[in-house]
């Protein structure tokens, strides 16, 4: 048994090593130079946070592609609009008639945007992210889309800690008879926490709404727990 275990370990380690060797330069840098863990007693206001949102061709993580990605940085209680991240990808062939166009309004390959290719986007994004805490609404999907894209280009997955504002909202006010599950959509929450809903369904616009939501939720959580928030409170 013990021997079997050791054998398995060496095998996976080797596998991992082989994989690492194939990583693109930008991912290797991201993986080795950046600290992704925060001590649990670290004050939350001292933790760098990136709010992230993607617009995609659809909801199938394996099939669909990212069309645009927006991100904003939050320090303490402020959102810095000067340090925004915004990138558009050309619509891949075969996705021009995607139903999602109606939602996000990104016309395939419209001349309104300047496009980058996926590796450039990934490289820039990882540099922008560093070790920040990633926050987003139903962020699991965006992270899965990004991980899928990273994998396609031979890179490993995102290593950042991820927080979903929908989960946070649910924690503050669990769903039940009074708040059915669909009440945790970004629209519903923005309404509940009185955040104006303009620029919905643009990556950056959603980021901004999510960012304000994040700050409002945190202040309520702090009241709930009765002390300054630390990483372990999340």
């Amino acid at each position: 048994m013990e021997r079997l275990r050791r054998w398995w370990d060496t095998l996976t380690e080797r596998g991992a090593k082989q994989e690492k060797a194939a990583w693109p330069e930008y991912y290797r840098r991201y993986d080795s130079e950046v600290q992704h863990e925060f001590p649990p007693d670290r004050l939350l206001r001292e933790v760098p946070v990136v709010i992230l949102d993607t617009e995609t061709t659809g909801l199938d993580v394996r099939q669909d592609r990212i069309l645009s990605l927006g991100a904003l940085k939050v320090y303490g209680n402020s959102i810095n609009l000067g340090e925004k991240f915004e990138a558009y990808l050309p619509t891949p062939p075969g996705f021009e008639h995607s139903e999602a166009v109606a939602i996000h309004g990104i016309i395939p390959n419209s001349l309104r945007y300047s496009y980058v290719d996926e590796p450039t986007l990934l490289s820039d994004l990882l540099t922008y992210l560093g070790g920040s805490l990633i926050v987003g609404h139903h962020i699991g999907f965006d992270v899965a889309m990004l991980n899928q894209t990273l994998q396609r280009h031979g890179a490993g997955p995102l290593r950042n800690r991820v927080i979903d504002t929908a989960d946070l909202a649910r924690r503050l006010r669990p769903s039940g008879y009074w708040t059915p599950d669909h009440d945790f959509s970004l629209d519903a929450l923005a309404r509940r926490y009185r955040i104006p809903l303009s620029d919905r369904h643009t990556s950056l616009g959603d980021c901004y709404i999510t960012g304000v939501l994040w700050l409002k939720l945190l202040s309520r959580l702090a009241v709930r727990v009765g002390h300054d928030l630390r990483v372990q409170d999340l």
């Binding site: 209680n77 402020s78 959102i79 810095n80 609009l81 000067g82 901004y208 960012g211 304000v212 700050l215 409002k216 202040s219 702090a222």
Partner: peptide, 14 residues
């Protein structure tokens, strides 16, 4: 000017 604005959130009493 607008592109460099920082949006600050102040909970009540802060």
């Amino acid at each position: 000017v607008a592109s460099r604005v920082e949006v600050r959130y102040q909970p009540p009493g802060t």
